[in-house]
Amino acid sequence: MAEPLISLKGVTKRYGEGTAAFQALKGVDLDIMAGDFVAVMGPSGSGKSTTMNILGCLDVPTTGSFLFKGVHVEGLDRDQRSLLRRRYLGFVFQGFNLLARTTALENVELPLIYRGEARKKRHDMAMAALDKVGLVDWSHHTPSELSGGQQQRVAIARAIVAHPDVLLADEPTGNLDSQRSIEIMELLTGLNQTSGITVLMVTHEADMAKFARTIIHFKDGLVERTETGHRPGLELA
């Protein structure tokens, strides 16, 4: 069996000090293979968001190890983790988090600016990403001129524009109606299958989790159980 892309071993996370301390994770072991589509589920306070923050290199475990592509992320500093995110990760948020008063195209170009791409290449890559989410015709619209579903598509285009290895989606359909939600999930599924991008998604909607190949259930800071192969035909590449 191949080496996992992501591997958490005995990860704990503790917030605060003394009596106010809160143990968010109590020893999580987790392997995620490249190309997988993973849904992380669990009630609030179960540790799923904390896990996602650690997997997204936004936070570090208190103890335990986090291997990403064979690199010990827990030993990296802030800027090193920023560079890791820049190169390998893409983020989609529940609240879309697009820059206001900024066109869809400029929003999508943002990660490329930090990667130091030239203007022309930036434009071409951003347009290609907008094409993948079906919004080429909306490239010069600002978020306030777009519907929620369109905004989330722009956010997905921004997340994939730099061809990351992993797409982290934190409740991507949380602010959308069911029709829009299904469209977004189909888009993510398509990206996962055609581009081979690994998708990690937090959701509390079982309907959305069904789109994933692997579902990880969290409870009380621990992995409760893992289900695999929900959707036949969605095989690991």
């Binding site: 920023s82 995110r85 820049r86 990760l89 988090n97 943002l110 930090y114 921004r158």
Partner: peptide, 11 residues
């Protein structure tokens, strides 16, 4: 926050 998540370093 968005810029940092996308990969901007503090500098």
């Amino acid at each position: 926050g968005i810029r940092l998540a996308i990969g901007a370093v503090a500098g």
